[in-house]
Design a protein around this nucleic acid. Structure first.
Lengths: 207, 207
DNA sequence: ATATAAACCAAATGATCGGTAGATAGTGAG
DNA sequence: CTCACTATCTACCGATCATTTGGTTTATAT
């Protein structure tokens, strides 16, 4: 019944582009990249099939565009916390409080930005396949995330790369359980509780 | 060039069925359920499209058949360890050693039975979508897994259901990282190291 | 007004999808 | 040897896929 748009709506291209990416994030996060068709997406944006492809040359390109966008967002949002850590470092103060805040905000954002989180979780798994169009992006993403986490954990734990993998795994794993059944537990609580086991109480001593 | 089978190979139905399920486990584990077509699968088994559908009425039914099979395998394989735990309980001995073994074998099996592990990881994520044909199965699977883990952890940790979720999350998360890049770390090592933080050293005292 | 650029659409492309129908061929029982 | 059974095939179905072609509409700048 969703009347075949008689009137053409000509929208500001940057706005339209954002709407497309937002819809793609939601749909792909729900059904996976292989589970979403261009016509699905087009209909959600209020555009024809060909209208969509005016913005992104192909389905794959659209996915890469979305990943690029998310990458930018991710960097912009985490920058202030990185800065806080570097500042503590510069001031000779323990970086632990800043690291704790960073880790908590990470989880906070997971539930605040539900669509993006679901998208990342779903596509990270789907892209294990080397032939998946997002494979390389997530490969890099994970390496960088683990590297960064390892760095900020280095002053506090004996094997920072290992601890980084634990935290990355925990965040993804708990996040996924929470996506499936959000009402069965409190994500932030369980995360913070786990951190008390993994991170040290005091500020300085490694191990 | 894989010559269009001139000669008909008539195979024992139960064997053929197993081959189909084995191929499905591998293919779906690589590309996800939505990423695999019946013709892909048929070709891998050396069967025509229609030949495949002689064994499973539809693509969805095939998936459910595979899940059923995996469920049976899973139960059969974990039964001895469950028994060991119950036996320790009956003998008044601490169940901790048996629990540790159970948890280690869990991870051991993850890398031993690569195809099944990849399948479970990939489909668990894909089936977050309530409309996915495997959604209900994994919902149940997770509830049961968490419940069982919570039970065997109860004597050792203050909040067994929470710890169960941690372990489930860690196993999935580490497993996924390892599936993507198996050469970058040793799965069993990192798992056991994490367990030393999460499980108690001694046998009895909770907390 | 008129022209230019580009945002957008209808319709068609060939490929491929999951699934069906009706033959055909291998197999074990008698 | 013959028959019934069924595992398997070829051929086809309508639907849907991503993408292309070529035109139509709208905003803007002159």
């Amino acid at each position: 019944m969703a009347a075949t748009g008689q009137k053409r709506v000509r929208e500001d291209p940057t706005v339209r582009r954002q709407k497309i990416l937002a819809a793609a994030e939601i749909l792909i996060g729900e059904r996976g990249f292989n589970g979403v068709t261009l016509q699905d997406l087009a209909r959600h944006v209020g555009l024809s099939n060909a209208g969509l492809l005016h913005y992104f040359a192909s389905k794959d390109k659209l996915l890469l565009g979305l990943l690029e966008d998310i990458g930018r967002r991710e960097i912009a949002l985490s920058e202030p916390f990185n800065a806080a850590i570097r500042e503590a470092e510069r001031n000779g103060v323990s970086t632990l409080p800043a690291v704790r805040i960073f880790l908590d905000v990470l989880v906070q954002r997971f539930s605040d930005q539900l669509a993006q989180s679901r998208f990342l979780v779903v596509l990270q798994t789907e892209s294990i396949d080397p032939a998946h169009p997002a494979h390389d992006w997530f490969q890099q993403y994970e390496v960088q995330a683990l590297h960064f986490m390892g760095q900020i954990l280095a002053p506090f734990v004996p094997r920072p790369e290992m601890t980084a993998r634990w935290l990355h795994a925990l965040l993804n794993g708990l996040g996924q359980q929470w996506l499936r059944a959000p009402d069965t537990f409190n994500l932030l609580d369980e995360w913070q509780e786990a951190l008390t086991l993994i991170l040290p109480k005091d500020g300085t001593g490694a191990r």
